[in-house]
């Protein structure tokens, strides 16, 4: 969690995605639709976001729409932390 306070959520997400997605991503680019990763990768993203940002992804949050782009995940994390993105 120390790391999370030093780097922005966007930087943390980009560093993680760089290991899995073989291309530079635009903020709103849907990496599932682009075929870079299979839908199973979404499960890894949920676990990563929970551990990295110390939030709990509730059943109603389990939608691909919250995880399909860097921007979507940033907004989701901000909402769960109760702060404006």
């Amino acid at each position: 969690m120390n790391e999370a306070s030093q780097r922005s959520p966007e930087q943390i997400l980009r560093a993680f995605l760089a290991r899995h997605v073989p291309a530079a991503l635009e903020s709103e680019e849907d990496f599932f639709a682009r075929g870079y990763v299979s839908s199973l990768f979404a499960l890894q993203l949920v676990v990563f976001v929970e551990k990295q940002f110390g939030i709990t992804v509730e059943p109603e949050d389990l939608s691909l729409d919250n995880f399909r782009s860097i921007g979507a995940m940033e907004r989701f994390v901000a909402r769960k932390r109760g702060v404006a993105p």
């Binding site: 839908s39 199973l40 979404a42 499960l43 949920v46 676990v47 059943p59 389990l62 939608s63 691909l64 995880f67």
Partner: peptide, 14 residues
């Protein structure tokens, strides 16, 4: 336990 929860994202059933 984890998969029963997470798979909701990839299928209709929860």
């Amino acid at each position: 336990r984890q998969q029963a929860r997470l798979y909701a994202m990839l299928r209709k059933r929860t």
